[in-house]
Design a protein around this nucleic acid. Structure first.
Lengths: 292, 292
DNA sequence: TACCGTTGCGTTATCGTTAACTTTATGCCA
DNA sequence: TGGCATAAAGTTAACGATAACGCAACGGTA
């Protein structure tokens, strides 16, 4: 086999055999390691069970999501892992009708198709807001990229708004845009926010990458962090600990999500019952929200 | 079809049909968007031609590379895109024997199998070194994660060493480790480097993420950047412009690599001749190497 | 009307492997 | 040594599409 460079034809094998060794993975983005490290952990765990990942990237486009899910299912995968629990109705329908184990990652709650491994994003948003409130912030804003189909970001914003109402503070101010989350966007939105709402003393960013731009803008505007304004991010990007000031954030354990998803896939292939696994996020307190 | 949620079986279609619509993509890492944004651009370009990406991640493990390439080929892909031009001999042999169009990405030079789209990493390393030399640095170090199988990093280091020799300066000092490139590693290596070689006044980092840790360590050690030590990274991570001081770096146009790879794949599927495409990197001068 | 080229439609071999099935060989015991 | 259970080996029918093929219908021309 080796000498002739023979490579078996898995299309034939898959067509004939009873089980497939493809796992379809549907993500909404690959930028900024948002899901890349989940994918990394998932893939290396699946490798041990000889499962091959087939990747689809919807780029937050719901039409693409339908197309790509159909495309993934056409490979008769052993299982499908997909980001989020909020999908276009047709996606849910296709996945349900396929009879294939479906693992929804990153988010939980509501209408889980089969099995879910993720965080409670409403709780995350509430935790971010409460952290800033504990630090003495009185006037909070939620800032960042917010895609129409990023239900997670919307849940975090909702959670934050609820926590603020519960604390009896002024309403949460929104500074969002449906564009991709890059530092320049954070920079721009921070300037715009402070010119309209000069009293803001706490900013919840929708991602660390956005927060980087916010920190840059605040420095440029002569605002001290955290003395004048506290900033908290989401995602714990590797660079966050190296910012000046270092960025407080919320750390989702992406590696664990990937590993647990792999476990769930194997369990469901083995016909074990479906479950929902809620993972906690760690609040990482650094200098951008340090008590003063 | 829609009503019954019918999804055609592509295993059957692939087995029967003359052409496959899979493109195998082999990367060495997914962390830190090193290749994630190439993948992102590649995938969205291929989507327009109804080509599906099948992903494999070797994690810089040459044995895995052989296994994964074999696995990818077993799907009878329409083309294979793979990071790098330096592979284990068996990989080259398998790819050659497969008769499938092969696009090597990210690096160029030497023993191209078929078509390559990438940068001259030796030139990149030389450009980094020359930039620091122009800024007045006399004693340079190359610092970062260096995997045994990361031929690109080795080429950049070689290029830097050659430029230094050409300038008649002291030999390049190496501070490398075969571990994954994270800020903590950069932090650690910078401290170790400066305790052994206190005269170092210019550090070439193997990645921006490593450089973040270096900047953090230097700040902690009371070294001024760029007054005492200049630092340059590689990769132009999104956070780099938000560092204090902002990080000078080299920007490979990942999006363009992805797009050009997609173009090359389509061209080769159409039986157009193979080519090698050299892309230039932009030197991004920021405060960490600003003239003083 | 006969002829021929074109089109449309229905049938069937084929892709390369797996798994079920049949046949043959082997080993053990009475 | 025969009989039977078991193991090994060999054979064949799927798997679900595609594409080649054959045949009938059709239309234009001589």
């Amino acid at each position: 086999m080796d000498e002739l460079n023979y490579v078996p034809n898995r299309l034939a094998g898959g067509l004939s055999g009873t089980r497939s060794d493809i796992v379809g993975v549907v993500v909404t983005s690959l930028y900024h390691s948002e899901f890349a490290s989940i994918l990394d952990a998932l893939q290396s765990a699946l490798l041990k069970s000889n499962l091959q990942v087939m990747l689809a990237n919807t780029r937050y486009d719901p039409d693409q999501e339908v197309t790509l899910v159909r495309s993934i299912l056409s490979w008769r995968p052993a299982a499908v892992a997909i980001i989020g629990v909020d999908h276009p109705p047709k996606v849910t329908e296709l996945l349900r009708a396929s009879g294939v184990p479906i693992i929804e990652m990153w988010d939980i709650g509501g209408d889980v198709i089969d099995t879910a491994v993720g965080m409670d994003h409403t709780a995350v948003g509430a935790a971010q807001a409460r952290h800033l409130i504990e630090r003495g912030c009185k006037s909070l804003a939620f800032l960042g990229s917010m895609r129409d189909n990023d239900a997670r970001a919307q849940k975090r914003a909702t959670g934050a708004a609820q926590a603020i109402t519960a604390a009896g503070l002024n309403d949460l101010v929104f500074a969002t845009r449906p564009e991709a989350g890059k530092p320049d966007l954070g920079d721009h939105l921070a300037r715009e926010l402070l010119s309209k709402h000069p009293g803001i003393d706490g900013i919840i960013c929708n991602s660390d990458v956005i927060a980087f731009g916010v920190l840059r803008a605040l420095k440029d505007l002569g605002k001290r962090v955290p003395e004048d304004i506290s900033v908290i991010g989401f995602g714990d990007s590797e660079a966050s600990s190296c910012m000046t000031p270092s960025l407080s954030t919320v750390r989702p354990d992406r590696q664990r999500i990937g590993e647990k998803t792999a476990e769930a896939i194997l369990a469901r292939i083995d016909d074990e019952p479906s479950t929902t696994m809620t993972l906690d996020c760690e609040l990482v307190t650094r200098d951008s929200t340090r008590s003063i």
